[in-house]
Design a protein around this nucleic acid. Structure first.
Length: 271
DNA sequence: AAAAGCCCCTGGATGC
DNA sequence: TGCATCCAGGGGCTTT
C-alpha cells in the first residue's frame, strides 16, 4: 500500500505528538515479516525522541537504539490517546505516555524491528542499500543522471527498486513516467539527458503533490487519524486501464513488469 | 554486479 | 451460496 507519500503522511500524523513520550508497554500480535529482535521489556521505559523517515521506513529514535517500522503492502498506523481492544489485524501496539501507536496490517508484510544503533548490522541490512531521498537536497540531477545511465533495466523497474531513488512505489512510478512522457519499458541507460531531467523533476513533483493530498487511498490506506488520502483521484494512468488518457483520450494501456502492473498512455509516452 | 523470479500473507472482486 | 482464480501501495533473498 504505502509509498513515500503515505509513509510521510503517516509520520506527520504522530511525530510531534509522540516526541518525548515514554514507552509504557508493548503488545505483539501475530508475527510480522521479521521478529522484533529484542524483548518487549527492553523497550519499556525508553523515551521516543523523534520520528524520522528513510525511504518507506519510519525510524523511531529511542534512548538506546531505534525502532524501524515498515508498513509493507497493507499496513497502516493509528495514534490515539487510548486504544480499544485490538482487532484481528492489529499486530503491534506501542503504549506510550502520550498515546498508543497501533499497527494494523492484514497481510503482515510489514515489520517492526529494533536496532541497537544506526550502524548495527540489522539497520545496515535494511537501510544500507537505499537510494537518495527524492524530497531531499541530495536528489540532484547530475547524480540521478549518472546513476540511471548505469542501469540497463526498464526505467519503471529501476525506479521501483529504490537503489537509485527511494520511495517511488507502483502508483507513483507509473504517474511520474506519465508526467515525464517516458514509456515504462524504456531502458534507463538509454534515456537522453533532457528526458532524465524531466523524470527527475516529475518524481519530486508527483511525490510532493501526493503528500499534499494526504497520499493515495486505494483500498485500505488511512492516516494516523483514520482518514483517507485523495491523490488517487488525480491519477493520470494508475488503475485506469482501457480508460481514456486524460490528456489525449487514447485508451490507457496496462502491462506487467516484474509481476507488477504498469500503466501508461501509448500516445503520450511513445518511448 | 545487475537483472529477473520467487516468496511471504490475507481479503476483496470476479467468474463459473 | 460455494469454490476457484486472480489481483493488491513491498522488498529481501535466491538464482541466473
Amino acid at each position: 500500500m504505502p509509498e513515500l507519500p503515505e509513509v510521510e503522511v503517516t509520520r506527520l500524523g504522530f511525530a510531534s505528538a509522540i516526541a518525548g513520550a515514554r514507552i509504557v508497554s508493548v503488545r505483539l500480535g501475530k508475527p510480522l515479516r521479521w521478529p522484533m529482535g529484542c524483548d518487549a521489556a527492553n523497550l519499556v521505559g525508553q523515551r521516543v525522541h523523534a520520528v524520522r523517515r528513510r525511504g518507506k521506513y519510519l525510524l523511531l529514535d529511542l534512548d538506546r537504539g531505534l525502532l524501524l517500522l515498515h508498513l509493507g503492502m497493507s499496513g497502516s498506523l493509528t495514534f490515539a490517546a487510548s486504544a480499544g481492544e485490538p482487532g484481528k489485524h492489529d499486530h503491534f501496539d506501542l503504549h506510550t505516555s502520550a498515546g498508543v501507536l497501533r499497527l494494523n496490517d492484514p497481510r503482515r508484510f510489514g515489520a517492526v524491528v529494533f536496532a541497537p544503533s544506526q550502524d548495527s548490522p540489522i539497520a545496515h541490512k535494511l537501510l544500507g542499500k537505499l537510494g537518495v531521498e527524492p524530497l531531499g537536497e541530495s536528489f540532484d540531477l547530475a547524480a540521478f543522471t549518472a546513476a540511471m545511465r548505469l542501469r540497463n533495466a526498464p526505467v519503471k523497474q529501476v525506479l521501483l527498486a529504490g537503489e537509485v531513488v527511494v520511495g517511488v512505489g507502483n502508483i507513483y512510478a507509473s504517474e511520474a513516467l506519465f508526467q515525464a512522457g517516458i514509456r515504462p519499458t524504456t531502458r534507463a541507460a538509454r534515456l537522453s539527458r533532457p528526458r532524465l531531467a524531466r523524470l527527475h523533476h516529475a518524481v519530486r513533483d508527483v511525490l510532493t503533490r501526493a503528500v499534499a493530498k494526504g497520499g493515495s487511498t486505494l483500498r485500505d490506506f488511512s492516516n494516523t487519524q483514520g482518514e483517507s488520502g485523495y491523490f488517487q483521484l488525480e491519477a493520470m494512468v494508475y488503475g485506469r486501464a482501457a480508460q481514456p488518457c486524460k490528456v489525449c483520450a487514447t485508451p490507457v494501456r496496462s502491462i506487467r513488469q516484474g509481476q507488477r502492473a504498469t500503466f501508461f498512455c501509448p500516445r503520450c509516452q511513445k518511448a
